[in-house]
């Protein structure tokens, strides 16, 4: 395809003259793609700009895409009393690291087992996992079960266990494992290697891009999770970053709504810019890392779309 692209680019304009309608098509094509890209960026721009605008300017003029009055006050507040944010950062980093590692281990082991064609129960096992995507207990019974029977209320495990294993990731990983030649596994077996040794010394080293893909999906899921925290966490010191951001957002939004309904002009709503600065702090790591790992996500999405 790459070769074809090049051919088209070089030969089309010379050999076959672009007709007026084709030219119009390309103008529209570039225009619309550019427009969509800009629309995708606007909220980020608003976020960044709002976070560096002076609080008073915001409450008087509202948010804008270009900071009206530049001020780093909001970031100053965050870093002056950083305990709350740093602790939330710590929680997020902890659950992301622990959950991703454990999830990778579980996914890889299971994918190895269900990709083994000589394992009698592989189809049965695959269906056991796949069935959970067709049918589930729903929010209410899951919530009651986790709290009443598994005692996950305010327990860090409630942030780690639910996101650890995902059928979608299992199927993607199986595709990667299937690409390891079976003859490699067989010959290792003949040489007397046990299954554990085969998995950890032969198969896993060949799965680097698979591990990177699944690891990144898992990490993204943990980093962005606020739902489990909202359901199960009640102590603020155990809030992960996204949920901490959410609770701060809630506080200011409630205040503003009351003010609007009562028709009162509130001169200085607390932390308008602070809220945005927090969102920047919470999202920053993703936006910075994402362009470098994009290819793994694209591979995962493409493989997953065939399997899902």
């Amino acid at each position: 395809m790459a070769k074809n692209d090049k051919d088209m680019m070089e030969s089309a304009p010379r050999k076959i003259k672009l007709s007026a309608s084709s030219k119009a098509f390309y103008v529209i094509c570039y225009g619309i793609v550019l427009l969509v890209a800009v629309v995708c960026l606007i909220p980020f721009l608003l976020l960044l700009s709002g976070s560096v605008t002076a609080e008073q300017w915001i409450s008087f003029h509202g948010f804008s895409l270009i900071p009206g009055e530049f001020s780093l006050e909001a970031y100053g507040i965050i870093f002056k009393t950083p305990e709350r944010i740093l602790r939330a950062y710590g929680v997020s980093i902890f659950i992301t690291a622990a959950g991703t590692l454990l999830g990778l281990l579980l996914t890889t082991m299971t994918a190895y087992v269900i990709s083994r064609k000589d394992f009698k129960y592989r189809n049965w096992l695959s269906f056991f996992f796949y069935f959970t995507t067709l049918f589930n207990g729903g929010m209410v019974s899951t919530y009651i079960f986790y709290i009443q029977y598994l005692h996950l209320k305010d327990n860090m495990l409630a942030l780690i266990l639910p996101g650890m294993f995902n059928v979608f990731y299992l199927l993607i990983m199986r595709t990667f494992v299937n690409n390891v030649p079976f003859s490699l596994i067989e010959s290792a077996k003949l040489d007397g290697a046990g299954e554990w040794r085969i998995l950890f010394t032969i198969v896993i080293p060949l799965l680097k891009s698979g591990l990177a893909t699944i690891g990144l999906f898992l990490a993204l899921g943990y980093w962005n999770d606020w739902y489990n925290a909202m359901l199960y966490m009640s102590t603020e010191t155990k809030y992960p970053l996204q949920y901490m951001l959410y609770s701060i957002q809630q506080q200011t939004q409630a205040l503003s709504r009351i003010a609007a309904q009562a028709g009162i002009q509130v001169q200085n709503l607390p932390s308008n810019s602070l809220k945005l600065a927090m969102a920047v702090v919470a999202t920053g790591p993703i936006v910075i890392v994402y362009p470098f790992v994009q290819k793994y996500f694209i591979a995962g999405i493409t493989i997953g779309s065939v399997k899902g």
Binding site: F63, Q242, T283
Partner: peptide, 18 residues
């Protein structure tokens, strides 16, 4: 264009409100 996929809904909530 793929960037929004990576953003948590909490941050999207902040966008909407802003």
């Amino acid at each position: 264009i793929l960037l929004p996929y990576f953003i948590s809904w909490v941050v999207v909530g902040v966008f909407v409100f802003s």
